Amino acid sequence: MSERQKGVKALNPLTILYLVIALAVVSAIFDYRVTLATVVVMIVIAASAGEGVSFIKLWLKSIVLICVICFVLQSLFIPGEEVLWEFWVLQIKMESVQKAIVLCSRIMGIGSAILLGGKLIDIKKLMVMLEKRGMSPSATYVLVSTTNIIPQMSKKMNAILEAQKSRGIETDSNIIVRAKAFFPSVGPLILNSLVSAEERAITLEARAFSVPCKKTTLKVVEDTQTDRIIRGLMIAAVVLAIGGKIVLWIVFR
């Protein structure tokens, strides 16, 4: 484990990935009560790693908002028999509420696990581990590039807008003014991204990326006995959860 990281972040990134998958599977196959419990566990894990505040803020702005919208739409438009609430042409029925709870529970469980993984996993170290496990370097490069697209484009867009502001172009007024400043910036952003992709490809070829030989890496990722034990426990937890769900389905169907 790394002494520079806090809590779960100190674990091997592959171990964190197993933990995130286990939490997502458990929250997806059981009802909303288990989902709420797993979400609480995720918040505690994020807090132990020093990411509690940022995780909760992002969770409220994304997962909770999506769940609220889905719950309202499902409750209003899924047909049913038992009416719980009615106003004009709008009706909320018991069956629609039950289906909305199931859907929102799965969205919240799986979405929260994905957010937790994004906060805790060092994607570059994870790619190193996956390469050691036999994944193609080309595949790992594609994954790293994909995960970095949005942050990189966001930084470039901010730089372009700051350049426009330094030239006296208004970018912080009402939505119409912002749109006028935003759309002319899309062209340079796209061209910049294409040039950057070409430069990365040339840099990789200069470093013999496509040569069929054993690759070396600057990042050394430790895989301790503790990590291997935790991964084994996560696999066992997923198997037990799926097995328990099957048993419950057989008994109470």
Rank of each mutant, 00 (worst) to 15 (best):
I63Q: 05
L116R: 04
C104T: 13
M127T: 01
L84G: 00
I66N: 01
D122N: 11
I56H: 00
W85Q: 02
K99F: 10
A47M: 09
V40K: 00
G80T: 08
M127Y: 04
A49E: 00
I21Y: 05
F30S: 12
M42W: 05
A10R: 04
A46F: 07
I92E: 08
P13S: 10
V97F: 14
N12F: 12
I45Q: 05
V53G: 05
L65F: 15
A10K: 10
V53C: 06
L126M: 09
D31F: 06
V68W: 06
E82A: 07
D31I: 06
G118A: 00
L120P: 03
I16E: 03
S96N: 05
N12W: 14
M129N: 14
K119V: 10
N12P: 11
T38W: 00
K61E: 11
E86V: 13
L36T: 08
L36Y: 11
V53K: 14
K9N: 06
I66D: 01
I107L: 15
M108G: 04
C67Q: 06
T35I: 09
V8N: 02
M129Y: 03
M129R: 15
I92N: 00
I123H: 06
M42T: 00
M108H: 04
I45V: 13
V20R: 11
F87Y: 15
E95A: 07
V39D: 08
V25Y: 02
V34T: 15
K57S: 14
L17C: 12
I56F: 13
A22C: 11
C70V: 15
G109R: 11
L58P: 05
V41W: 01
T15M: 07
Q91M: 12
I63V: 12
T15E: 04
I123D: 01
G118L: 06
A10F: 11
L76F: 12
L36Q: 09
I43T: 08
L84W: 10
L120S: 01
Y32G: 12
I78C: 10
I114F: 12
N12I: 09
L115E: 05
F55R: 06
F30T: 09
M129W: 01
G118S: 01
V34Q: 01
E86N: 09
I45C: 01
I43V: 12
Y32W: 14
W88V: 03
R33S: 07
L58V: 14
G52S: 03
